[in-house]
């Protein structure tokens, strides 16, 4: 049998995995309870069963009804944008705002179509000044500005 509607097929797979998976986890790990006194598993199992069933319909339908192909995944922007977020999260404390914003701007800029060093550098300088003034000074978010190793040298 051939898949006629790839979008429905993969959506079906995704929903079956989520619904079935979460229902199974709930069923094995938490108390089901009764309809009068519902345990922590009751509602998730109910939802998961419906989600799984609907996913199954999508899955089955994808072999019968014709639908469009899944549009191409563009891995370049996907990976660079997600990496930029992670870099910010995990490097803010060691590198300070100055370092973390640098990472976000440059990594995300690599995910685009054109990369111009000068332009990105100017953008970075503008953004870091704005962020320090508005977020750290203005809104008093407790972010370190400088990398922790040279913190003592740059007090503003």
């Amino acid at each position: 049998m051939a898949i006629k509607s790839p979008k429905d097929f993969w959506a079906g797979v995704m929903f079956i995995a989520f619904g079935g998976g979460m229902a199974a986890i709930a069923l094995t790990n938490y108390q089901m309870g009764t309809a009068v006194r519902m345990g922590p598993a009751y509602f998730p199992v109910l939802l998961g069963a419906i989600l799984g069933a609907l996913g199954l319909i999508l899955f089955a339908r994808s072999f019968a009804l014709k639908g469009p192909a899944v549009a191409k995944f563009h891995f370049r922007p996907l990976l660079f944008i997600l990496a930029a977020c992670l870099a910010f999260g995990y490097f803010l404390k060691p590198l300070g705002l100055i370092g973390a914003v640098l990472l976000v701007v440059f990594i995300s800029a690599f995910g685009g179509h054109e990369f111009k060093w000068k332009e990105v550098a100017i953008l970075y300088v503008a953004l870091i000044i704005f962020s320090i003034l508005v977020f750290v000074k203005g809104l008093t978010l407790p972010f370190p500005i400088c990398p922790s190793s040279i913190e003592d040298f740059c007090r503003f």
Binding site: I81, A84, C85, F88, G89, L92, A100, V101, V104, V105, S108, A109, G112, V120, L123, L127, S131, F135, L141, F143
Partner: peptide
Amino acid sequence: YPSILVFMCIGVFS
């Protein structure tokens, strides 16, 4: 978009 991303990261982290 890099600007938006910076603001989003700052917002989420905070």
